[in-house]
Computed example of a mutant assay.
Amino acid sequence: MEEARGIESDVAIDKDKILKSKFFLIVEKLSSAINIVFSGVLFLTPSLCYLEDEYPEFVNVSSTAFTTLTLIDIFIQMTYGFLLVKNDLLEDSFKRKPKRCLKSVCSRCAARRQDPKWFKLKYSFILLATFFFGAYSLWKINTFFKADQTVDFYRLFHLFGFQLNALLSLMVFVFYGNQLESHSGPLETDDDLLESQAPLGNKMV
């Protein structure tokens, strides 16, 4: 039996290797990396149009760099999309398995079972608060040079604080969003737990 399972796993691995060649994997990783870089530059970089009068050369260079990054991102995404279509993986890329808590003993599921309304209200409030904190930080970053075009260490440190707050808000939002999704599945009743434990009890005897 173990040898048969080993053969099946090898066949599955070989199939994945056939579907995803080295070039496909490289493009896939580049696609993820360029998306992260592009999103960081787009949202975590202040708008430089307010500095055009005082620092025209710097603004021109930054604009050219951003345009180049945008074109690279578009090219890689188009290449990645073409490879998905060619390998019949386009539909699979849109499919996402729902996250479900698989722990036999989970404090969050127990809290939800005890008070489901408070469980959803608490997580909804956390998600709403982190969203507004992050949106406020992104707004402050975008308009950072609107009222004051001074560039010094103190103001750059202040800008870094808004960027850090935006990143932390995003991380907390994603974390609690995953927690809410994974612990919002169907809850097992006491009868289900007894039925699942019954075979184990018979085997132990």
Rank of each mutant, 00 (worst) to 15 (best):
T67Y: 07
R96Q: 12
Q77D: 08
D92I: 07
D88I: 01
K86S: 12
T67I: 05
A65V: 12
I74C: 07
L69V: 03
I72R: 00
I72F: 08
T79W: 07
R100P: 06
R100K: 13
P98L: 07
I76L: 09
N87H: 10
I76V: 15
F94R: 07
K99Q: 10
D92M: 09
D73Y: 14
L90S: 12
L71W: 09
F75N: 08
D73F: 14
L89F: 00
Q77H: 11
E91A: 13
R96S: 12
N87W: 02
I72H: 06
A65C: 09
T67Q: 10
A65N: 11
Y80K: 10
T79S: 13
K99W: 04
G81V: 04
L71C: 06
R100A: 08
L83N: 03
R96L: 11
A65Y: 03
D88W: 07
S93D: 03
K99S: 07
M78S: 11
K95Q: 05
Y80C: 04
T67F: 04
L83D: 06
M78F: 08
Y80F: 15
M78L: 12
L90P: 00
D73E: 10
L71N: 13
G81A: 07
L69R: 03
L83M: 14
I72V: 13
K97F: 02
G81R: 07
L89Y: 04
V85I: 09
L84W: 05
I74P: 00
L71S: 14
A65R: 11
K95S: 02
L89Q: 05
Q77C: 07
A65P: 00
L83G: 03
S93N: 03
L89N: 00
T79G: 06
D88K: 15
T70F: 09
G81N: 15
F75Y: 15
L71M: 14
D92A: 15
M78H: 04
D88V: 10
D73K: 15
G81L: 09
R96T: 13
V85N: 11
K86D: 11
Y80V: 00
R96K: 15
F75E: 12
L69E: 03
F75Q: 10
L71Y: 08
F66S: 10
L83W: 02
I72P: 02
K95A: 07
L69Q: 04
D73Q: 15
T79V: 10
I76S: 01
F94E: 06
K95G: 00
N87A: 11
V85K: 14
D88A: 13
T70I: 01
L90R: 14
R96Y: 05
D88G: 08
